[in-house]
Protein backbone atom coordinates (compact mmCIF):
# COMPACT_ATOMS: atom_id res chain seq x y z
CA UNK A 1 0.00 0.00 0.00
CA UNK A 2 2.61 2.51 1.05
CA UNK A 3 5.00 1.35 -1.69
CA UNK A 4 2.23 1.78 -4.25
CA UNK A 5 1.68 5.32 -3.04
CA UNK A 6 5.39 6.07 -3.25
CA UNK A 7 5.55 4.61 -6.75
CA UNK A 8 2.55 6.71 -7.76
CA UNK A 9 4.16 9.74 -6.23
CA UNK A 10 7.45 9.18 -8.05
CA UNK A 11 5.60 8.56 -11.29
CA UNK A 12 3.80 11.84 -10.89
CA UNK A 13 6.83 13.94 -10.06
CA UNK A 14 8.81 12.37 -12.91
CA UNK A 15 6.20 13.28 -15.49
CA UNK A 16 7.47 15.89 -17.96
CA UNK A 17 4.05 17.40 -18.56
CA UNK A 18 3.49 18.33 -14.95
CA UNK A 19 6.96 19.92 -14.76
CA UNK A 20 6.06 22.11 -17.70
CA UNK A 21 2.77 23.02 -16.11
CA UNK A 22 4.56 24.06 -12.93
CA UNK A 23 7.02 26.20 -14.93
CA UNK A 24 4.16 27.93 -16.68
CA UNK A 25 2.50 28.68 -13.38
CA UNK A 26 5.66 30.15 -11.91
CA UNK A 27 6.63 32.40 -14.83
CA UNK A 28 5.03 35.84 -14.77
CA UNK A 29 3.78 37.12 -18.11
CA UNK A 30 6.37 39.45 -19.58
CA UNK A 31 5.90 41.86 -22.49
CA UNK A 32 8.36 43.73 -24.67
CA UNK A 33 6.91 47.12 -25.60
CA UNK A 34 8.57 48.80 -28.62
CA UNK A 35 7.50 52.29 -29.66
CA UNK A 36 8.39 53.97 -32.98
CA UNK A 37 8.01 57.71 -33.55
CA UNK A 38 6.11 58.11 -36.86
CA UNK A 39 6.30 61.91 -37.06
CA UNK A 40 8.44 64.21 -39.18
CA UNK A 41 9.41 66.73 -36.50
CA UNK A 42 8.03 65.84 -33.08
CA UNK A 43 10.57 64.22 -30.76
CA UNK A 44 8.79 62.46 -27.89
CA UNK A 45 10.01 63.02 -24.33
CA UNK A 46 10.79 59.83 -22.36
CA UNK A 47 7.56 57.84 -22.44
CA UNK A 48 6.12 55.59 -19.76
CA UNK A 49 4.61 52.08 -19.98
CA UNK A 50 2.31 50.83 -17.20
CA UNK A 51 1.02 47.27 -16.75
CA UNK A 52 -2.06 47.47 -14.57
CA UNK A 53 -5.47 46.11 -13.63
CA UNK A 54 -8.88 47.44 -14.63
CA UNK A 55 -8.95 50.01 -11.79
CA UNK A 56 -6.01 52.14 -12.94
CA UNK A 57 -6.81 54.94 -15.40
CA UNK A 58 -3.88 56.93 -16.76
CA UNK A 59 -6.34 59.40 -18.28
CA UNK A 60 -9.96 59.56 -19.36
CA UNK A 61 -11.16 61.46 -22.42
CA UNK A 62 -13.51 64.27 -21.48
CA UNK A 63 -12.26 64.62 -17.90
CA UNK A 64 -9.42 66.59 -16.30
CA UNK A 65 -5.88 65.26 -16.45
CA UNK A 66 -4.13 64.38 -13.19
CA UNK A 67 -1.30 66.70 -12.13
CA UNK A 68 1.09 63.82 -12.90
CA UNK A 69 -0.19 63.55 -16.49
CA UNK A 70 -0.12 67.35 -16.79
CA UNK A 71 3.53 67.29 -15.73
CA UNK A 72 4.29 64.74 -18.45
CA UNK A 73 2.24 66.49 -21.15
CA UNK A 74 3.44 70.05 -20.52
CA UNK A 75 7.07 69.46 -19.62
CA UNK A 76 7.93 65.93 -20.79
CA UNK A 77 8.67 64.85 -17.20
CA UNK A 78 7.42 61.30 -16.58
CA UNK A 79 8.72 61.00 -12.99
CA UNK A 80 5.52 61.82 -11.12
CA UNK A 81 3.34 59.55 -13.29
CA UNK A 82 5.92 56.79 -12.83
CA UNK A 83 6.10 57.26 -9.04
CA UNK A 84 2.32 57.34 -8.67
CA UNK A 85 1.93 54.19 -10.79
CA UNK A 86 4.56 52.34 -8.77
CA UNK A 87 2.87 53.36 -5.51
CA UNK A 88 -0.52 51.82 -6.28
CA UNK A 89 -1.47 48.16 -5.88
CA UNK A 90 -3.45 48.47 -9.13
CA UNK A 91 -0.14 48.46 -11.03
CA UNK A 92 2.18 45.45 -11.44
CA UNK A 93 4.95 47.24 -13.31
CA UNK A 94 5.71 50.77 -14.53
CA UNK A 95 8.74 51.57 -16.64
CA UNK A 96 10.11 54.73 -18.22
CA UNK A 97 11.68 54.51 -21.67
CA UNK A 98 15.42 55.22 -21.65
CA UNK A 99 15.40 58.59 -23.40
CA UNK A 100 13.92 60.94 -25.95
CA UNK A 101 12.34 59.11 -28.90
CA UNK A 102 13.53 61.07 -31.92
CA UNK A 103 11.43 61.09 -35.13
CA UNK A 104 11.77 57.76 -36.95
CA UNK A 105 13.50 55.96 -34.09
CA UNK A 106 12.40 53.05 -31.89
CA UNK A 107 12.88 52.32 -28.16
CA UNK A 108 11.82 49.31 -26.08
CA UNK A 109 11.09 48.42 -22.46
CA UNK A 110 9.88 45.20 -20.85
CA UNK A 111 7.09 45.02 -18.29
CA UNK A 112 6.26 41.98 -16.20
CA UNK A 113 3.27 40.94 -14.13
CA UNK A 114 -0.12 39.25 -13.90
CA UNK A 115 -2.07 42.41 -14.67
CA UNK A 116 -3.21 42.48 -18.27
CA UNK A 117 -3.90 46.09 -19.17
CA UNK A 118 -1.31 48.36 -20.78
CA UNK A 119 -1.20 52.17 -20.82
CA UNK A 120 1.42 54.41 -22.43
CA UNK A 121 2.09 58.14 -22.64
CA UNK A 122 4.85 60.38 -24.01
CA UNK A 123 4.91 64.12 -24.73
CA UNK A 124 5.28 65.52 -28.25
CA UNK A 125 7.82 68.18 -27.32
CA UNK A 126 6.91 70.69 -30.04
CA UNK A 127 3.44 71.16 -28.59
CA UNK A 128 2.07 72.90 -25.52
CA UNK A 129 0.54 69.84 -23.85
CA UNK A 130 0.20 67.16 -26.51
CA UNK A 131 0.99 63.52 -25.83
CA UNK A 132 0.80 60.21 -27.64
CA UNK A 133 -1.24 57.78 -25.62
CA UNK A 134 -2.61 54.29 -25.23
CA UNK A 135 -5.16 53.77 -22.48
CA UNK A 136 -6.01 50.46 -20.80
CA UNK A 137 -5.35 48.18 -23.76
CA UNK A 138 -6.27 44.60 -22.86
CA UNK A 139 -3.47 42.07 -23.41
CA UNK A 140 -5.14 38.83 -22.32
CA UNK A 141 -5.51 37.55 -25.89
CA UNK A 142 -1.73 37.49 -26.47
CA UNK A 143 -0.17 34.04 -26.11
CA UNK A 144 3.54 33.52 -25.43
CA UNK A 145 5.61 34.43 -28.50
CA UNK A 146 2.78 36.37 -30.12
CA UNK A 147 3.17 40.02 -31.11
CA UNK A 148 0.68 42.72 -31.98
CA UNK A 149 1.13 46.07 -33.72
CA UNK A 150 -0.94 49.11 -32.75
CA UNK A 151 -1.07 52.65 -34.12
CA UNK A 152 -1.41 55.37 -31.49
CA UNK A 153 -3.24 58.70 -31.60
CA UNK A 154 -2.34 62.04 -30.09
CA UNK A 155 -4.16 63.69 -27.22
CA UNK A 156 -4.28 67.16 -25.71
CA UNK A 157 -4.04 67.14 -21.92
CA UNK A 158 -6.29 70.20 -21.80
CA UNK A 159 -4.11 71.81 -19.14
CA UNK A 160 -2.51 74.57 -21.20
CA UNK A 161 -3.68 76.83 -24.03
CA UNK A 162 -2.15 75.87 -27.38
CA UNK A 163 -0.42 79.19 -28.01
CA UNK A 164 2.57 77.45 -29.67
CA UNK A 165 4.68 80.39 -28.46
CA UNK A 166 8.39 79.94 -27.82
CA UNK A 167 7.84 80.84 -24.17
CA UNK A 168 5.51 77.87 -23.60
CA UNK A 169 6.78 75.03 -25.81
CA UNK A 170 9.56 72.99 -24.13
CA UNK A 171 11.48 72.14 -27.30
CA UNK A 172 11.52 75.85 -28.23
CA UNK A 173 13.29 76.60 -24.89
CA UNK A 174 9.98 77.55 -23.29
CA UNK A 175 8.53 76.80 -19.88
CA UNK A 176 7.32 73.24 -19.38
CA UNK A 177 5.02 72.35 -16.50
CA UNK A 178 3.01 75.08 -14.81
CA UNK A 179 -0.07 73.84 -12.98
CA UNK A 180 -1.64 77.29 -12.69
CA UNK A 181 -1.35 78.23 -16.34
CA UNK A 182 -4.59 78.66 -18.30
CA UNK A 183 -6.37 75.35 -17.73
CA UNK A 184 -9.33 76.96 -19.49
CA UNK A 185 -10.68 73.89 -21.27
CA UNK A 186 -9.53 71.38 -18.71
CA UNK A 187 -10.40 68.10 -20.42
CA UNK A 188 -8.26 65.43 -22.06
CA UNK A 189 -9.26 65.25 -25.71
CA UNK A 190 -8.00 64.33 -29.17
CA UNK A 191 -5.30 66.76 -30.26
CA UNK A 192 -6.31 69.01 -33.15
CA UNK A 193 -2.72 69.30 -34.37
CA UNK A 194 -0.45 72.33 -34.43
CA UNK A 195 -1.20 75.35 -36.62
CA UNK A 196 2.39 76.72 -36.97
CA UNK A 197 3.65 80.09 -38.24
CA UNK A 198 3.79 78.61 -41.76
CA UNK A 199 -0.01 78.37 -41.65
CA UNK A 200 -0.50 81.91 -40.43
CA UNK A 201 -0.32 81.74 -36.61
CA UNK A 202 2.13 84.62 -36.22
CA UNK A 203 2.75 84.00 -32.50
CA UNK A 204 3.75 80.37 -33.16
CA UNK A 205 7.38 79.30 -32.81
CA UNK A 206 6.61 76.22 -34.89
CA UNK A 207 6.92 75.63 -38.65
CA UNK A 208 5.54 73.19 -41.22
CA UNK A 209 7.92 70.39 -40.16
CA UNK A 210 6.20 70.26 -36.73
CA UNK A 211 2.75 69.49 -38.12
CA UNK A 212 1.48 65.96 -37.58
CA UNK A 213 -1.41 63.65 -38.38
CA UNK A 214 -2.38 60.48 -36.54
CA UNK A 215 -1.01 57.92 -35.95
CA UNK A 216 2.06 59.59 -34.40
CA UNK A 217 3.51 56.37 -32.99
CA UNK A 218 3.47 52.65 -33.65
CA UNK A 219 3.68 50.19 -30.78
CA UNK A 220 4.62 46.54 -31.06
CA UNK A 221 3.64 44.49 -28.01
CA UNK A 222 5.32 41.09 -27.83
CA UNK A 223 4.55 38.61 -25.10
CA UNK A 224 7.90 37.11 -24.11
CA UNK A 225 6.72 34.61 -21.46
Amino acid sequence: MSSALIAAGLGFSGCGDSDEMMDTEVKMPKYEISITNLTAGQPMAPAIAVLHNANYMMYTLGTSASVALETLAEGGDNSMLLAEAKATTDVDDAEGFSGVLTPGSTLSVTVEGDDDYLSLAGMLVNTNDGFVGLRSYHLSHLSVGEAERLELSTYDAGTEANSESAATVPAQQGEGFNTARNDANDKVRSHAGVVTADDGLSSSALSSIHRFDNPTAMVVIKRMQ
Binding site: L38, T39, A40, G41, G104, S208, R211, F212, D213
Partner: peptide
Amino acid sequence: AEGYVHIHRGNV
Protein backbone atom coordinates in the same frame (compact mmCIF):
# COMPACT_ATOMS: atom_id res chain seq x y z
CA ALA B 1 14.02 65.57 -46.75
CA GLU B 2 13.35 63.69 -43.49
CA GLY B 3 15.37 60.60 -44.47
CA TYR B 4 12.98 57.86 -43.33
CA VAL B 5 9.46 56.65 -44.11
CA HIS B 6 6.89 58.06 -41.67
CA ILE B 7 3.28 59.24 -41.37
CA HIS B 8 2.79 62.24 -43.66
CA ARG B 9 2.22 65.47 -41.74
CA GLY B 10 -0.20 66.62 -44.44
CA ASN B 11 -0.09 69.39 -46.99
CA VAL B 12 -0.16 72.89 -45.52
